[in-house]
Amino acid sequence: MQAYWKRSQRKLAPWLFLAPGLAMFALYVIIPIFQSMAISFYDWDGLGEKIWIGTANYVELIDDDAFYTSLKNNVIWLVLYLLAVPAGLMIAIFLNQTVWGIRAYKSLFFFPFVISQVVVGLMFSWFYAPNFGLFYKLIETVTGDGVAILADERFVTYGIIVAGLWPQIAYVMILYLTGLNNVAPDQVEAARLDGAKGWRMLWYVILPQLRPATFIAVVVTVIGALRSFDLVSIMTNGGPYGSSRVLSFYMYEQALSEYGYRMGYGAAIAVVLFAIMMVFISGFIWKMWRDETER
């Protein structure tokens, strides 16, 4: 025993250190994934008997308008949420200077990320509120007729995404600010001597050095867009008539809300959402793997 320990100590130690984390990860992440998959083949209200119905939940999903509305909204979220990356970069570059009081400005820009999503949602719903909201009043003054963003199926998803972008931009900004700290000053100096400035400096000298920050920013933004739930729940509850639903909200609605308790159907939606996320997550992991091994 002693001899075995001595011999393979270096091989075993990392696994021993990993064990608690792996156990938790398995218990709270891996096992529930398979449980969800299993539940998605049942008709179950959470109380009574589970009835095996095979793929019926998925068949229903294919023919469900609300599912396609949610899917479409998720795609809109994904595309527009990525605007946070260039926007965050711009603000970071703008704030990356040494003038008096810059720390105060930085913290002000970072502020929306610190407050809870629930508060962000409430603030924006008042901002959009018909009759007294600031935005509503503004539109009313300009066009003569106010638009209730959150009651109009054409605008509601965009209205929520704007609310979501506000803290997300701040988050990306912080990622880039730390990245900018690590930009090598000698390279910037050398580029300057060679006559680079403005866009060319940004594109060929700064951005390549920011690649790790960009990667993280894209990852957190994509995942943030796919799991967007709190803002939808706070601002519209999926309304008007379900037109601002996203997959995660639809899943919650079917499985756990007041009118839900279709655990199987909710689980089926969760599995689809998981599959979509897996596409991105495997892409990210593959890239990280490649970067690690290339080194």
Partner: peptide, 22 residues
């Protein structure tokens, strides 16, 4: 309506009513 009709019908029905009113 949401106590007479089962939950799934109630939810879909109320969304339908709201959409009709718009």
């Amino acid at each position: 309506f949401d106590r007479d009709a089962p939950a799934e019908m109630a939810k879909a029905g109320m969304e339908g009513f709201q959409e009709f009113m718009v």
